[in-house]
């Protein structure tokens, strides 16, 4: 089969945008931007968004959405902080308050989506508010700090020159890339995203899969919550507000189709890195505040439009 422009664009288009932006920035501000330290910073600063974006990628892959990831991040970060502040063992607190709670919140979303047959947009729009409200309630709207020093040192520390959040994000990315590419589960999710009815009639348990994608989403947001709390050494009641839009934008810039069935983890990771890179660049160039949103918006619209044009333009070949 002839591998045309479209073929390569689908696989490497996002990476191309990333490299292009790196080059542009390198020309503008080589001494600061391309320093090893700054490149590591871009990865570190993107780690939380990478984690949530990997999670939200799954609901989008089945033509759904998860708007609650920002709140899941806030709630898991807050609960794990409260558990630690109440003397729980750190690892147990992170497992229960972060990972398991995140997965559980995802399970709630997924179960509701399957049971009500409503679009995930509606369910997660609601659960987003519920989770945020819970976070405010249990924290009394006050930040929780004075966490064990070991916590930040471990989760937000370094292994050699590499920050632990980056290692966590990359590990999660590799695991989920494996899940999507090499497991029946992954194949089933793509089938469900491509054509739910065909997958159902082929004997794929689409109902269970729908729950699973939201569990993945919650799980990743939970891990992001841990990383965020560790980086700050504190849990803020409003932490993660609005982060879902960055995560969704990352998935979309990374080539994930809103109509389902198309996209991959690698693209999503690069998409999240692009957003991190842009934020970093805006700071370094000291771009005026009001301009920043315009730049970010243009990036999202531009990359998706480019994607469309290239995909369509080469269709006839």
């Amino acid at each position: 089969m002839k591998k045309d422009l479209r073929y390569y664009w689908q696989r490497l288009g996002t990476l191309a945008i990333f490299v292009l932006l790196m080059i542009i920035m390198g020309i503008f501000s080589p001494q600061y931007f391309l320093s090893r330290n700054n490149i590591i910073q871009i990865f570190l600063q993107s780690s939380i968004n990478v984690l949530i974006a990997i999670g939200v990628f799954f609901p989008i892959l089945i033509a759904g959405i998860d708007l609650s990831v920002g709140s899941v991040l806030g709630l898991t970060g807050m609960v794990s902080a409260l558990l630690m502040a109440n003397g729980w063992d750190m690892w147990l607190a992170l497992l229960v308050g972060g990972v398991l709670l995140g997965a559980f919140l995802g399970l709630l979303n997924g179960t509701l989506v399957v049971a009500t047959k409503l679009h995930p947009f509606i369910i997660t729009l609601g659960s987003n508010m519920i989770f945020r409200g819970l976070t405010l309630t249990i924290s009394d709207a006050r930040p929780v700090y004075n966490l064990p020093r070991q916590f930040s040192r471990t989760i937000a520390g370094y292994v050699g020159a590499i920050p632990v959040p980056v290692i966590i994000a990359i590990s999660v990315a590799i695991i989920f890339a494996f899940v999507t590419k090499k497991t029946k589960l992954g194949r089933g999710i793509y089938a469900l995203g491509g054509n739910e009815e065909a997958a159902w009639l082929s004997g794929i348990n689409t109902k269970l899969l729908k729950v699973v994608v939201f569990v993945f989403s919650g799980l990743c947001a939970g891990m992001a919550g841990i990383v965020m709390t560790a980086r700050m050494g504190a849990a803020e009641p409003l932490a993660g507000t609005g982060y879902e839009s960055y995560a969704i934008a990352s998935a979309i810039i990374g080539g994930t189709s809103f109509f389902g069935g198309i996209g991959n983890i690698f693209g999503v990771v690069v998409g999240a890195l692009i957003i991190g890179l842009i934020n970093n660049a805006l700071n370094i160039l000291n771009v005026q505040t009001y301009m920043q949103q315009i730049v970010m918006g243009l990036l999202i619209v531009g990359s998706v439009t480019l994607d469309r044009l290239l995909a369509r333009g080469s269709k006839g070949e």
């Binding site: 029946k184 589960l185 194949r187 089933g188 089938a191 065909a198 997958a199 004997g203 269970l208």
Partner: peptide, 16 residues
């Protein structure tokens, strides 16, 4: 697709 679904206990959820 059906082979994958059939060979797995939970309807295409388990296994590589």
């Amino acid at each position: 697709l059906p082979v994958i679904a059939k060979a797995s206990k939970a309807g295409g959820l388990w296994g590589l």
